[in-house]
Design a protein around this nucleic acid. Structure first.
Lengths: 243, 243
DNA sequence: ACTCTATGTTTGTCATACAAACTGTGCCCG
DNA sequence: CGGGCACAGTTTGTATGACAAACATAGAGT
């Protein structure tokens, strides 16, 4: 017999990974909205970890394009222009339609079951109207498809893009009307997958993303025309002293 | 009059960025081949920088999928399976054909001139047969197209994929025969771009990448069948003590 | 009113330090 | 002679403290 994985702690979670997750989530959830300045010292305090760990987490966020470093070395949450958002959604269309195709082709029995379960929960959550929970379920839905696609390369790429627009998706979902459309497209997608029809599934996914793209892009364009409230002094550039 | 940019040093290069570049290059050039173990202390000595900087650079490389962290926290240069390579090239096909299309559409006079210059140099270098220099020129060729595409999102994504297969590309180029094909495809691409024919350009780029994909994938498959020489003790897992 | 300066802030980088997880070696014992 | 265990060395993760350079702010001086 082989000693497989009897380790007590398989992955003694690293502090920096934990910090990374927390920061990613904070950005996705809008706790740190686009343009918001991130100050190392504050993050250390907020997360209760050392600067070392925060900085390493920041480097990863930087490589993921979730944060931007300004000319003065200031770190701010990445602002996504309507143009960038459009491109991101276009790439998502390419990647994720490819991913569903592979998902259908590789057809893992368990994965399909899991997807069905999530899909059902999704419907329930929608009726409840809890946007926050919905976002999580939707995330799991995508994640299941990506994992089932059997390609790490595609999955990683798609995940990266998804993360970048997470905040926008979240806001877009609280928009009235968009939800009803969304669930209908999901239904079609689920049906096609169950039927093992790759073309239909890819089409459904593509339509879904195209619709989402339009919603997100037009919203961003509106905001770019008439920028939203500027809180006091646009605090993204200054080196605000304490008192 | 406005003080534009008279800064003596616009971007006082950060140590960590410098380290990052060096490491990326070392991996691309095969100085650290796939599977090679990277030890922080050694990198510090080799680069002449502190562990802090090396670690931050490593986190970025990690996010770029150029290195892998093992279960025991060991860091090794990422090994690309034939399957992964195939997917990467497929994605490159999607992304870079899109990029050329945009390049043709956006048609920046300067960018086209630059591309022509590089293309000419490329021919010269090929006749010289210097693989190392060729790789650099080819890199500039891609870079020019990506920059001219006008989409940061697409360019970043494509760059990331390109970097991941850089080492493979390099080796593949030293393969006899592949070069002659390559230059022919480049000629077609250049012609199409000059003619402003987006479809033809995209087709040429796609064909080029498809051919490169086949070359790289079959080579990798061969090696996977019959793994290459294992140098002494397969030193990628141990925590080699000093003496 | 304007400029200059002192002071505080933030980031980049380095040097240390130490615990935890591993590894290899060699010694001791049966 | 073989087996196993303890010890020493290695590597990584994390925390601290320190300091320079680049800025920003506010207050002092003219």
């Amino acid at each position: 017999m082989e000693y497989h994985d009897l380790r007590i702690v398989e992955n003694p979670t690293l502090v920096r990974e934990h910090a990374l997750d927390k920061l990613r989530n904070a950005i996705s959830r809008g706790l740190y909205p686009p343009g918001h300045r991130l100050v190392e010292r504050e993050l250390c305090e907020a997360l209760g970890v050392s600067r070392t760990s925060v900085r390493e987490a920041l480097r990863q966020l930087q490589a993921e394009n979730l944060i931007e470093v300004g000319k003065r070395r200031n770190i701010t949450v990445a602002v996504i222009s309507s143009k960038d958002a459009e491109d991101i959604y276009l790439l998502r269309e390419m990647l994720e339609t490819l991913a569903v195709r592979r998902f259908v082709a590789n057809a893992d029995e368990n994965a399909i079951k899991k997807l069905q379960r999530i899909h059902k929960d999704l419907r329930k959550v929608i009726n409840k109207g809890d946007v926050r929970e919905l976002a999580i379920m939707a995330g799991e839905f995508y994640e299941t498809i990506l994992n089932g696609s059997g390609s790490r390369v595609i999955a990683d790429m798609a995940r990266q893009l998804l993360t970048r627009v997470n905040y926008l998706r979240m806001r877009s979902m609280s928009e009235p009307g968009r939800l009803e459309e969304g669930i209908h497209e999901w239904d079609r997608l689920m049906e096609a997958i169950q039927a093992g029809n790759a073309n239909a599934a890819a089409k459904a996914m593509g339509d879904h993303l195209a619709a989402a793209r339009k919603a997100v892009v037009t919203k961003l364009e509106e905001e770019e025309q008439q920028p939203p409230v500027i809180p006091a002094t646009a605090g993204a550039e200054r080196a605000t002293p304490r008192r």
